[in-house]
Each structure stands twice: as structure tokens, then as C-alpha cells.
Design a protein around this nucleic acid. Structure first.
Length: 491
RNA sequence: GGUCUCUUGACCGAGUGGCUAGGUGCCGGUCUGCAAAACCGUUUACUCCAGUUCGAAUCUGGGAGAGACCUCCA
């Protein structure tokens, strides 16, 4: 264990707090994952990257972390109670596929994208559809406590009763029930509910609904917030350390989760609630509902009208880490390009450490700079400060290389270990600038063949033969024809 | 309408009551046959108004603008 203090901003208290795990060296973290009815976009990436940093930092500190992130493949209603449609199912009928088919497809795509962004896979990635029994049990527990009621085959959470008899509703978003009452929209089809702000725990499925399960109340499906309460409890226990997600989940999602868990089991599910801010695009939140999102696939390929070019995964990751996770981050090509160049500079410095000339003395305090970097990360995951400090170190590395500064062997070894450790393991930035080799080879070949053609036109057969022979050595066969030269790689 | 947040230089983006954040760009330099790359140096700043203070971009009050949540949402 590394004996350093980690501070994190707790939405519950609106304060930065010292992290003290419930168990000495084990940490449980639950993060709300995506609803798998569409492709992952930059917003999903931000959330995944944010909590990847949390995960990596905790591991760096020596904690044994169990990181749980769910896939929501069922149960999120499109439009409150009035339609009863399920997002996954709706998408399925649109694509003429089985709901499970759609969910699995997007689940795989999501994982592919996050793997590329070098996000470590969570320890457990449960599916909502695989935990119907646990969710039914939770509904039962709430009914037993009298905090839920049955209406027309559906079960609703009695928010008012909970608020009066158990705990104030809305403690995470810091709003009062009075406040919520005043502002709840009156939606159609809510006659089943006692109050408009009550939320569904179990919904009776309309006959055309495909995704449905047997329950004591009706053939139906679980309510919007239930899965996270049920699954976090199953894998992390009744009380765990960190619960995370996007800021847009604070209300109602996380407040409902709290109400369900506290109502059923008596205690707060998590101690620390962490929320990442949104990615914006032209000042607006990026999201499906605004139809202004860029998928990660599009980022990698550059095929989107707002993209000037393709961006590689590490550029995207670095771009996100250059802003603090609790600030909104505005998407722009300029910022991405700036990130790309900056990251390369950092990688170049990293590669140089090994070949630095050693001296008797160091002209700068490597230990302090590394300390500053780590302390920045430990101060509520302040990656922008950490990165700024890494750039400072990079500048020193370059200066030593230019013989304007000096470094001892000891400091050099220290940097080699720690600079790399921070970049590789804490920030999770890896230098895999392999790029698209095929395009490069094609370009190179047309260039080489062009030069050979010129040589032949000038009757410089010595050069043209030299090119052909050298290519032959590399396993590239040249075939001259009337229409020019063709080539083939014999491997 | 209610609750809350934000407003920093050409762009992105940190931050603290007093000391140049950092990146990208621009400009200058080193290097170079020329160029590019690389490296070094430099430059422009805190939405407006009033107040507290020896001193505020940072605290307080007010104005303007933007955004988030209040409905599924990372």
C-alpha cells in the first residue's frame, strides 16, 4: 500500500473529502454503464475514462478493487409511464431484430471502443436482464416495508411515504420533495400512480411487448432504477465505497437508487458519489436526445461532418484528461489536434529518458516533480495539473538531452520508472502510433515505382534494377506490363 | 418557472487572495543545402458594475450571457 491521501469530491456532501474505504484495503466501486441500444459516443467515453482513472488510481495506491459496471439491456422506459416502451426493444423492432441481438451487438461495440481507449475492463459487467430475480426480490422487500404499492399489475415506489418516514427524498441532488412536487411535469397515463413523482419498480407489459418476465404482480419488466440497486448489492454488498456515473444521472436515477436501497435495507448503498460532467458540442450537451453526438467509431474513422480528420484513441483519451472530470468539456477539432501534438511531445520525452547523459548532479528536482504529478491525481483526479507537471518534466528531459541541464543516474532511473508508471499505469496512455500501415505501404510503393519508371525513361537501368532487386529482397514482386508496373507482396 | 453551475489570452484548459499553470497556435532562435520535424525562448488573460482588502481573476452583492437538471440520458 502506498501511504498517500486520496481526496475525492462527493456529490452527496458537495465537498471534497478524504477517501476512507469501508474495509481497510478493499474497495467496491459501482459505475452506471450504458444502455445498449445504440453506439457508444464521446459522452460514454468520458464516463468510462473518468472511472478508469479512478480504478487505476485506487489500484496504484494498492487497494484491491472490485469495479462493477452494468449493461442496461432492459427496462429503461422511453417516456415515463405513458408509452411503456423499452429502449432496447424499440430499437430492436426498428432494426427488425431480437432485443437480445441488438443488446449484444452494441455491448460488443461498446467494449471494443473502450478497449481501444485503453479503459481497463471492470471486474464484473452484469446485465440487467440476468438479474430479474434480484430485482423482483428488491420490489418484494419494498412492498413488505410498505414503501411500494401495486396498481394495475405494476408496482410503484411511494416517494411521499419514504420521504416522510424514512429519509428525505432527493438528498443527492439536494432538492426537497416540495421542490420536486412543484416541478414534476404532469404526463399522460399516470393515473396508476398515487403521485406523479412516484417511480415504477415493476411495469406490467402491454401485450405486444416482447421483453417480459413472470413476477408475482404481472408479466412485465423491471423499472428504470432498479437494476443498479439490485446488482450493486449483489456484487458489492449492502454498503460499498464508490458509486459513479454521469452528472445527468444524479436526478432522478441515483436519488431513486438511494431511495430504493435505503427503503429496502435501511442504509445508504454507497459512501462516495462521483459524477463526471458532460461533453458539449457547440455549447450543448452531447446526447442522443439532441441528436448531436459523435460516436467513437466515427472519431476513429473521421467519418462525421464535424470531424476534420480521424483521431486515434489515445488522442481522444488525452484530450479528455486535459480537462478536469467535473468540468464540461467542449468538443472541437482544434482542441483535439492540440491534444494530439501535445501527447506526441510527451511520448517523445518518455522515449528519451533512457538515453539521457548522466552527470554527478541533477539540475532539477525530479522527485518533487513526480510527487507533484501524483499528488495532482490524488487531489480529486486532477489530471490537467498532473499533465501540466508531466510537460514540465518533459522540458527538463529535453534540456538534459541538449546538455543545458544535468541529471544523475539515480534520478534518471527514478524518472524512467515513475514517469513511465504515471503515463502507462495511472493515466493509461499507451503509445501505439502504428497507424494504418496499409495506406502507408501503398503510398510508398507508388512512390518507389514512380521513381523506377523515371529511371527507366532516362535509360538509367542501373537504378531501376537496383530498385527491383531491393524490392525482391523484401518479398515484393514487380510485374512490368504495357500499362505500367504492378506489385505484389509475397509473404 | 424551480434548483444549480459556468463565463480565463487566437483556441483548448487549470488554478490560488499577493509568486509566468500547461498544451496548441503565432512570432523569434538553434539545427539544416532548402524545407519539414525536433528542441529552446517569447507573446496576448481572467464577462460587466460596485464593495471588502494594503492587495482580487480568486471573497461579497448586483447586472449580462451561456449551460445542466427538473423526462430516457455518460
Amino acid at each position: 500500500m502506498i501511504n498517500k491521501e486520496l481526496k475525492l469530491y462527493n456529490t452527496l456532501t458537495n465537498k471534497k473529502e478524504k477517501f476512507e474505504p469501508i474495509n481497510k484495503d478493499r474497495v467496491g466501486m459501482y459505475v452506471c454503464g450504458p444502455t445498449v441500444y445504440g453506439e457508444a459516443h464521446l459522452g460514454h467515453a468520458r464516463s468510462a475514462i473518468t472511472f478508469d482513472i479512478v480504478f487505476r488510481t485506487l489500484k496504484y495506491l494498492g487497494y484491491n478493487v472490485r469495479y462493477v459496471r452494468n449493461f442496461t439491456d432492459v427496462g429503461h422506459l422511453v417516456n415515463d409511464a405513458d408509452s411503456g416502451d423499452d429502449k432496447v426493444e424499440k430499437q430492436a423492432s426498428k432494426e427488425n431484430k431480437e432485443p437480445q441481438e441488438v443488446a449484444q451487438y452494441y455491448e460488443a461495440k461498446y467494449l471494443w471502443a473502450m478497449d481501444n481507449l485503453n479503459c481497463l475492463r471492470p471486474s464484473i459487467q452484469p446485465l440487467a436482464s440476468g438479474h430479474i430475480i434480484e430485482q423482483i426480490d428488491l420490489v418484494k422487500a419494498l412492498l413488505d416495508k410498505g414503501l411500494a404499492y401495486i396498481s394495475e399489475g405494476s408496482v410503484y415506489f411511494d416517494v411521499e411515504k419514504y420521504d416522510k418516514t424514512v429519509k428525505p427524498y432527493g438528498i443527492l441532488s439536494h432538492r426537497t420533495l416540495e421542490n420536486t412536487k412543484d416541478n414534476s411535469r404532469t404526463l399522460s397515463g399516470q393515473e396508476e400512480k398515487h403521485n406523479p413523482f412516484d417511480f415504477a419498480l415493476w411495469k406490467k407489459a402491454p401485450k405486444e411487448h416482447i421483453m417480459k418476465w413472470q413476477s408475482p404482480w404481472s408479466e412485465g419488466f423491471p423499472g428504470w432504477h432498479l437494476e443498479c440497486s439490485a446488482m450493486s448489492r449483489k456484487y458489492l454488498g449492502q454498503e460499498f465505497d464508490i458509486h459513479g456515473g454521469g452528472m445527468d444521472l444524479i436526478f432522478p436515477h441515483h436519488d431513486c437508487e438511494i431511495a430504493q436501497s435505503v427503503g429496502a435495507y435501511g442504509n445508504m448503498p454507497a459512501k462516495y458519489w462521483l459524477h463526471n460532467n458532460m461533453i458539449t458540442i457547440e455549447g450543448r450537451k452531447m446526447g442522443k436526445s439532441y441528436n448531436n453526438f459523435i460516436t467513437i467509431t466515427e472519431m476513429f474513422s473521421g467519418e462525421h461532418h464535424l470531424l476534420q480528420k480521424a483521431y486515434n484513441p489515445m488522442t481522444i483519451r488525452f484530450f479528455m484528461l486535459m480537462a478536469h472530470y467535473r468540468s464540461t468539456l467542449d468538443f472541437s477539432n482544434d482542441a483535439l489536434i492540440a491534444a494530439e501534438k501535445g501527447l506526441n511531445r510527451l511520448f517523445e520525452a518518455k522515449d528519451k529518458i533512457n538515453s539521457l547523459p548522466e552527470s554527478k548532479e541533477s539540475s532539477f528536482d525530479a522527485k518533487k516533480l513526480i510527487d507533484d504529478t501524483i499528488n495532482a491525481v490524488l487531489d480529486d483526479f486532477n489530471t490537467p495539473i498532473a499533465i501540466a507537471t508531466l510537460f514540465e518534466i518533459a522540458k527538463h528531459i529535453n534540456s538534459v538531452m541538449d546538455k543545458k541541464e544535468t541529471i544523475t543516474k539515480e534520478d534518471k532511473d527514478f524518472l524512467q520508472t515513475n514517469f513511465n508508471d504515471i503515463i502507462d499505469n495511472i493515466l493509461g496512455l499507451k503509445n501505439d502510433n502504428k497507424g494504418n500501415n496499409e495506406d502507408v505501404i501503398k503510398g510508398l510503393m507508388s512512390l518507389v515505382l514512380d521513381m523506377r519508371k523515371h529511371a527507366r525513361e532516362n535509360k538509367d537501368y542501373q537504378t531501376s534494377d537496383q530498385i527491383r532487386d531491393a524490392l525482391q529482397e523484401l518479398g515484393i514482386e514487380i510485374k512490368d506490363s504495357k500499362d505500367g508496373a504492378q506489385w505484389r507482396l509475397n509473404k
